[in-house]
């Protein structure tokens, strides 16, 4: 574990790059989270209260309910990949920049 005293946490927090990173990350993460929870809850709610719609056949015997359940897999994995890409190409890069910057300024994180 690093010793907290050796890193100037307050300075990092005051850094505008950190603030902008945190803002973008928060809205992206919680936005995706809200979409996932709402989309997921549509399945039990639909199955319980909109059964007529779920029973409509669209592809041979395949009905809306089955397609909707399958779409949950696609949407969930899609969100996972979307987040993963965004984090690797954007958030991680900025975070690495900030960390490297503060390490250079002498606020080196100590070794274990």
């Amino acid at each position: 574990m690093t010793t907290p005293a050796t890193v100037d946490w307050d300075a990092i927090i005051k850094d505008p790059r950190f603030q902008s990173l945190h803002r973008r990350k928060t809205s992206f993460l919680w936005g995706l989270m809200a979409v996932s929870v709402v989309y997921f809850l549509m399945l039990p709610i639909g199955a319980a209260y909109f059964q007529d719609l779920f029973d409509v056949r669209v592809w041979g015997v395949v009905n809306v309910g089955l397609l909707f359940a399958l779409s949950e897999f696609v949407v969930t994995l899609g969100i996972a990949i979307l987040y993963s890409r965004k984090a690797s190409s954007d958030f991680d890069v900025v975070a690495a920049e900030i960390s490297a910057d503060f390490a250079k300024r002498g606020a080196t994180p100590s070794k274990e």
Partner: peptide
């Protein structure tokens, strides 16, 4: 008081956690 540290770490743990792994 420790919030700032948690706040920074959970956001940009990247290099910090690398150093803990040595």
């Amino acid at each position: 008081e420790l919030w700032n540290e948690v706040y920074v770490r959970q956001n940009i743990g990247l290099l910090v956690s690398k150093s803990t792994a040595h």
